Simulated scan of single mutants.
Amino acid sequence: MAKKKQVMQDALATNRKARFNYAIEETFEAGVVLTGTEIKSVRAGQITIGDGFVTVNDGQAMLVNVHIASYEQGNQFNVDPLRTRVLLLHKRQIKQLDVLTKEAGITVVPLKVYLKHGYAKVLIGVGRGKKQYDKRESIKKRDMERDANRRFKR
């Protein structure tokens, strides 16, 4: 009997600050329109999504401010590393994102980039910005869990 293929690899890039700075309410999986040299760089893990965000323009979801390094052997086919990339979502999901982003304090950020069946996917999250006291509470909770795990190991 043949083995099943692995559906999802580990994340190629994660935005660790997103869950700290935003209270993520909803997530979407989106495909990304990339050129040939860009997908090679993504597969090599040369992508940074820390400063990225998602906007909706003319009925298209766009991934802005995500850096994909130029492919070393790419010569003239390399494109601008910070160019705006189109996200592939269903129309109803794009409309839903558009409505959500019109609210004050709501931001759509990329959380994770991974490969699924050979295609680059981005997990985007709709989040509301946290206040400073919420961030302090998150730090306190994380430290308490870390201390409990240390005591449990002993």
Results as ranks from 00 to 15, higher is better:
F77W: 11
V79R: 13
T55Y: 04
E38P: 03
G50E: 12
K141W: 03
K131N: 10
Q93A: 14
R151E: 12
S138W: 00
V79I: 11
A11G: 08
Y119L: 12
G127C: 11
R19C: 07
V7H: 09
G105T: 03
T101S: 05
N149V: 01
R16F: 10
R19E: 12
D51R: 14
A61Y: 04
V126P: 02
R142Y: 11
L97W: 01
R128V: 10
A104G: 09
V113N: 00
D98M: 06
Q93R: 06
A30N: 09
K5S: 09
A2G: 09
Q132G: 01
F77P: 01
G125K: 03
F77Y: 14
Y22C: 04
F20H: 10
Q60K: 15
V42C: 12
V64T: 09
L111Q: 06
V113L: 13
M62A: 03
R128T: 08
D80R: 02
N78G: 02
E103D: 13
E103I: 03
G31D: 08
E72R: 15
S41Q: 08
Q60V: 10
V86R: 15
T14N: 08
D10R: 14
I24F: 07
G50A: 14
E29G: 05
R142Q: 11
V54G: 04
V54C: 06
I124T: 03
Q60R: 15
R19Y: 13
A30E: 07
L82C: 01
N75E: 12
I24V: 14
K121R: 15
L34Q: 06
T55V: 15
N75Q: 09
N78E: 03
K3C: 05
D10C: 09
L89F: 09
Y119R: 15
Y119H: 13
N149I: 00
V33Y: 06
K135H: 03
Q46G: 06
A18N: 06
K141Q: 11
Q132S: 12
N75K: 13
D134C: 05
S138A: 10
Y22E: 02
P81E: 04
I49M: 05
I68Y: 02
T35L: 02
A2P: 14
N57E: 15
G74F: 05
F20D: 09
V126A: 06
V79K: 14
G74V: 05
G127Q: 06
L89K: 02
A23D: 12
A23T: 11
T55N: 10
K141Y: 08
K140M: 05
V54I: 15
E103H: 13
G105M: 04
H117G: 05
V109G: 01
Y71H: 15
E29T: 14
H67A: 04
K121V: 09
R92K: 13
I68H: 02
G50F: 06
I47P: 00
N75Y: 06
L89M: 11
I47S: 01
T84N: 14
H117F: 07
R43G: 00
K91I: 05
R128H: 11
M144W: 06
K135I: 13
N65D: 14
Y114K: 07
R150I: 12
Y119K: 14
F77G: 01
V99Y: 07
T48S: 11
N78S: 03
G45Y: 11
L111E: 05
G127E: 04
L111D: 04
I124H: 01
H117V: 04
